[in-house]
Simulated scan of single mutants.
Amino acid sequence: MIHHNFQFKEATDKERSLYLFLGEALCAVQILEDALSHSMVIKKKDPHQKEEAIELLKKQQRYTFGKGINIAKKESLLPKSLENKLLKILDERNWLIHESVIGDKENFKSNSYFKNIINRSKTLSDNAKALQISIELDLIEYCKNKGKDMSMVKNEMKKNLR
Rank of each mutant, 00 (worst) to 15 (best):
G147I: 06
D34V: 05
S17P: 00
I2T: 09
Q7C: 12
K88A: 14
Q132K: 06
G147H: 13
L22V: 02
K122H: 12
N84D: 15
N119K: 13
E10S: 15
N94M: 03
L124S: 00
H38F: 07
N145Y: 06
N160L: 08
N5R: 15
I97Y: 04
I135D: 01
K88L: 15
S134D: 12
E136Y: 02
I118P: 01
D138N: 08
K158I: 15
L124I: 04
Y142A: 03
K9S: 11
E24S: 08
E55S: 09
K58H: 10
S17C: 03
K144M: 10
K146Y: 04
N155C: 07
K73P: 00
E92P: 02
L139E: 00
K129R: 09
S100F: 00
K88D: 15
V101E: 01
E83R: 04
L56C: 08
D91H: 15
L86I: 04
I102V: 13
R120C: 06
Q60P: 01
Q61R: 12
N107A: 11
E106P: 02
H48M: 12
A28N: 10
M152N: 09
D46I: 10
L131R: 03
H4P: 05
V153T: 14
E55H: 13
E156T: 07
V29L: 06
H48R: 09
F114I: 00
S121F: 02
M150W: 03
I135S: 00
L56A: 10
I97S: 08
H38E: 10
E83F: 06
Q49N: 04
I117S: 00
Y142K: 11
E106C: 03
E33G: 04
Q49S: 08
I97V: 07
K109S: 04
T64Y: 15
I71M: 05
K148L: 13
G103V: 04
S151N: 11
D46W: 12
E83S: 05
H48V: 11
E52V: 04
S39L: 07
P79S: 10
C27D: 09
C143Y: 10
R93Q: 06
F65P: 02
P79C: 05
D91E: 15
K74H: 07
F114L: 01
R120M: 12
K45L: 09
S37Y: 10
